[in-house]
Write a protein that binds this DNA or RNA. Structure first.
Length: 141
DNA sequence: GCCAACGTTGGC
DNA sequence: GCCAACGTTGGC
């Protein structure tokens, strides 16, 4: 099991929108960045990822579950781009803001802080546990 | 709305 | 293969 973080602008696709997709979830399309794509290719069914709202909110609002392995992104003809499918796993009881993440020394190396623009990021088990603790999600899934 | 950071593109 | 120009992202 690996942990990840998915970024999305809520005005384009929010966690609420993901929940509305139900168990089938949706393909996480539109990613046009090699590092982000490589992260998706490394994902396995059942992997979990934080769902982060960028631009508005600036907080981790929920957890998503990978429900299909990387496959061609149907939103483009370019065969380089692949994506996984994700579905909503659960809300976090208390959203964790970027400000809180930045203020926590344990999370100083998180990609969210260091690689601000990467849209699909890996999260270490230690970071996962810490953010879950901050979100009042005990035990961490 | 601005601007910094950074990834990608394309000319050489 | 380098590097300058450009476009996009995302925090503020």
């Amino acid at each position: 099991m690996n942990y990840w973080l998915f970024k999305s602008e809520p005005s384009v696709f929010s966690f609420e929108a993901l929940k509305a997709k139900g168990k089938a979830g949706t393909q996480w399309d539109g990613v046009r960045n090699y590092a982000a794509r490589n992260n998706m290719k490394a994902m396995q069914i059942g992997d979990l990822g934080f769902f982060y709202h960028s631009n508005e909110g600036l907080d981790i609002v929920g957890i998503a579950e990978v429900c299909a392995l990387a496959h061609p992104d149907t939103s483009t003809d370019d065969p380089r781009w692949e994506c996984v499918d994700i579905r909503a796993y659960k809300d976090v009881p208390k959203p964790v803001t970027l400000e809180q993440v930045k203020a926590n020394p344990k999370l100083a190396d998180m990609a969210l802080v260091r690689l601000g623009r990467l849209s699909v990021q890996p999260v270490t088990p230690a970071e996962w546990k810490e953010v879950c603790r901050m979100a009042d999600l005990n035990p961490a899934p």
